[in-house]
């Protein structure tokens, strides 16, 4: 049976109506800025840098969504039609796991957050790297793709070329338990 795709949630700017990442090209970027600083600081790090230390902290708390104080503040200042729900930032995580000494598996998580069908992705990966690739349930019940062998180093390029909606900046490797950006 065919798999039903899950709709992707897109963060639209209530000021200019565009996806937040396009505000900079919208009709009036200046007007969008206050909303962006509050709701999409990761998209415009330069805007956030311009703010003072205190608001930096607010944003930090705000995006981790912990303190009730900040939440109240958010409710007061929310723009009409503003989106409230914090969206999980889509990212692709790649990890290499060594099984029985020399056997190695590369695990890819998060492609589904970009609206990519994992069954298709696994087929493409298997073909590209001429190895076994399969979709498996991950430990957190989220699906992931396992590819036999160490393919870490060609992978980022392959992903961004095959699925052009995945920016290289959203790809991370797990190296020695640390999350490092694929870029750079």
């Amino acid at each position: 049976m065919a798999v039903k795709l899950q709709p992707l949630e897109v963060l639209y700017c209530p000021v200019c109506s565009l996806p937040a990442e396009y505000c900079e090209f919208g009709p009036d970027f200046e007007k969008c800025k206050p909303w962006l600083i509050k709701n999409a600081p990761e998209l415009y790090p330069d805007l956030v840098k311009g703010e003072n230390k205190w608001s930096w902290m607010c944003i930090f708390l705000h995006s981790s969504g912990t303190t009730s104080d900040v939440k109240k503040d958010e409710e007061v200042k929310r723009l009409p039609g503003g989106k409230v729900k914090k969206k999980e930032k889509p990212e692709v995580i790649v990890e290499k796991i060594v099984r029985n000494k020399r056997k190695c598996v590369t695990i890819i998580k998060g492609l589904d957050m970009f609206g990519i069908k994992l069954s298709d992705a696994s087929k493409k990966l298997g073909k590209k790297f001429a190895s076994g690739a399969s979709v498996v349930k991950g430990p957190t019940e989220k699906d992931q793709i396992d590819v036999q062998g160490d393919i870490m180093y060609d992978l980022a390029e392959f992903i961004t070329e095959t699925w052009q909606n995945v920016p290289e900046s959203a790809i991370y490797f797990i190296e020695d338990g640390r999350k490092v950006p694929a870029m750079g």
């Binding site: 795709l5 709709p7 897109v10 970009f114 609206g115 069908k117 699925w163 909606n165």
Partner: peptide, 9 residues
């Protein structure tokens, strides 16, 4: 935007 994988890009 909801189903970006449906079209060639």
């Amino acid at each position: 935007h909801q189903y970006p994988g449906i079209m060639k890009m």
